[in-house]
């Protein structure tokens, strides 16, 4: 049980980082931390007691294996987070080019 809670703690850390930090790069890092926490949680959900990796090979018989489906899902989620992270970083670099700063308190032209 504790390990699941640690995972959620990591998620909360990531969200805290997104909400509290002022530097755009740190916000992106916070998002990545939160993403990894969710992925970790998903992988932990798949664990079965004394299970082994669900890899079939010619000379073994598997009696007790972990659930392979969440691994595939997490791989997909990682790919998606790669895409959105790359886009976020590209936007952040463009913002630096235009505003000359990463501080979100100084990037505040949209208001009202």
């Amino acid at each position: 049980m504790g390990i699941y809670l640690l995972c959620l703690l990591l998620f909360c850390l990531g969200i805290y980082c997104v909400l509290r930090k002022r530097n755009i790069i740190k916000i992106i890092i916070g998002i990545i931390i939160a993403e990894y926490a969710v992925n970790l949680f998903f992988v932990l959900v798949a664990y079965r007691m004394n299970g082994r990796a669900p890899i079939l090979s010619p000379d073994t018989t598997i009696t007790n294996m972990v659930d392979p489906l969440p691994h595939a899902l997490v791989l997909t989620a990682i790919v998606i987070s790669l895409a959105s992270t790359a886009l976020l970083v590209a936007i952040a670099m463009r913002i630096y080019e235009k505003y000359g700063t990463f501080d979100i308190t100084k990037i505040k032209e949209l208001k009202g």
Partner: peptide, 9 residues
């Protein structure tokens, strides 16, 4: 894309 963008700036 990221590298070229960086060099431009």
């Amino acid at each position: 894309a990221l590298v070229v963008l960086n060099l431009d700036s």
